[in-house]
Design a protein around this nucleic acid. Sequence first.
DNA 1: ATCGCTGTACCGTCCAGACGGTACAGTAGA
DNA 2: TCTACTGTACCGTCTGGACGGTACAGCGAT
Lengths: 175, 175
Amino acid sequence: MPVDGRPTRDRLIDAFESLLVSSGSRGATLDAVAAAADVSKGGLLYHFHSKDELVEGMLERLRVQGAADVEKMRTAPNGAVDFYLETSVDSGSDFDRALIATARIAQENDPRASSALADLREAWFAELREHTGDEALARTIQLIGDGLYFDDTTGLAADDALSHVRAVLSRLDVL
Amino acid sequence: MPVDGRPTRDRLIDAFESLLVSSGSRGATLDAVAAAADVSKGGLLYHFHSKDELVEGMLERLRVQGAADVEKMRTAPNGAVDFYLETSVDSGSDFDRALIATARIAQENDPRASSALADLREAWFAELREHTGDEALARTIQLIGDGLYFDDTTGLAADDALSHVRAVLSRLDVL
DNA sequence: ATCGCTGTACCGTCCAGACGGTACAGTAGA
DNA sequence: TCTACTGTACCGTCTGGACGGTACAGCGAT
């Protein structure tokens, strides 16, 4: 048991995600993850027997976080659309980090990561569709959210992007 | 000079891009690039003295392709917006591949790749803004394009996405 | 209480293979 | 002869992973 409040297992996944986000999968080596979590490499391999298990652990945590996010979206006070856009721009939350990290893994041709992401996107889309009552609009809003995400992760985000999107969606009587 | 029509130098960049797109930068090793281009490792290192030079070569070619794309966008018969959306969805063209490959490199924290991408995005935005006369709309369309790209690269593209986007943009009197 | 044992939570070292890169000798075609 | 390669033989470093060892908390039987 670690002295510190957050369990070592979670700290390792945190470190893995952070490294994936900041340096891509080339930088997310087991040594780097262990060092970032302030754990020895042996310690890391105690919790996760292989790099593959580390990925699995991250995806499992993402699914839990994702289910909670969809629930929050469903009951958001300003509506699902606003909640979706707001959380599409990287706020630096744990869930954002997990999502970006998973996208990195998915790009490396990991079918588990791709399907975890696909499941989440489907759930989001179902919410958007229900709240707008319009499939085309829901799909478009989801694309805008994806665009916000992509820009953030490529480090090319325009700071006024979200307000511009809100202005345009107002003209469509959404928001 | 190779017997084959396409110069070896270009074939090497092609192979590098293809590997980046299909397996990420972890899979794009010098050995793999050389093998995919049907060139010996020595032959690769004859053209590019280091992996860094390979990246540089790819970025230089992207800039040339990018300038041509912006020009085509400016003079597109169906308008810049339609052209932009059409080319945002991965058609498998050389330019698409170059763009996705560069995004992969940019995610690995390469400032040269990021700035090459930023320059291109700025040029596209300027075109969109000029053709719509509306900054908020231009920014939103660019985000939709980014979303289309992101979905393609993550392997989660909805096949009806583009037609849905067109339907929504029609309501805004664009297209 | 204490002895023996188990499970948890690590640490530190070692290793095979992959990777980027170097060096150089050889060769087919213009 | 020069260009454009091929092929082979390396080197040093990094990486994932295996392995053995350590420390300690808890727990049932004696």
